[in-house]
């Protein structure tokens, strides 16, 4: 591990927050017994991943990758637009999966009148 050699505050803030979110989300998804909390965990993991992805595209001193009239002639350094586009896709897909998952939870609740996975045991968990 090469910690300490090149860690400044921003690195710790962005990567640290993102990794912390991923870990918190994974913990919730794996340990919690309520379907809703598991889903919240998965969403937190998604947020962490998205934050990490956007952080990777950051460039020190870079502007937003938009050639608005104010900056078009100045040719400034711009942050990487690719991760931003990828994150947009990832967010939409995350939303879609969450929506389907919530529908499944609604149906499980309708059936079993509970969202606790210990009480929904027709199939082995």
């Amino acid at each position: 591990m090469s910690l300490g050699s090149n860690l400044d505050l921003l690195t710790v803030t962005f990567y640290g927050t993102a990794i912390a979110l991923i870990l918190i989300g994974l913990y919730a998804a794996l340990v919690k017994r309520s379907l809703i909390k598991i889903l919240i965990g998965l969403s937190i993991v998604d947020s962490g991943i998205n934050l990490l992805l956007v952080s990777i595209g950051y460039l020190k001193g870079g502007t937003a990758p938009i050639f608005s009239p104010a900056v078009i002639d100045k040719n400034p350094a711009m942050v990487d637009p690719v991760p931003q586009a990828l994150v947009l896709t990832a967010i939409v897909i995350g939303f879609a999966v969450t929506a389907v998952a919530l529908a499944l939870v609604i149906r499980l609740y309708r059936h079993h009148k509970t969202v606790n996975i210990d009480e929904i045991k027709n199939l082995k968990w």
């Binding site: 991923i22 998804a29 379907l35 598991i38 998965l42 993991v45 998604d46 991943i49 990490l52 992805l53 990777i56 690719v82 991760p83 990828l86 990832a90 897909i93 999966v97 389907v100 998952a101 499944l104 939870v105 149906r107 499980l108 059936h111 929904i120 027709n122 199939l123 968990w125």
Partner: peptide
């Protein structure tokens, strides 16, 4: 019990896509 099976599938599938995105991120 389709909803249960599906939720299980979805849970594991979400983890799979998380890992996939992380890997893509590292490569990029």
């Amino acid at each position: 019990d389709g909803a249960e099976a599906s939720f299980k599938y979805l849970f594991i599938g979400s983890l799979s896509s998380t890992f996939l995105l992380l890997a893509i991120m590292i490569i990029y």
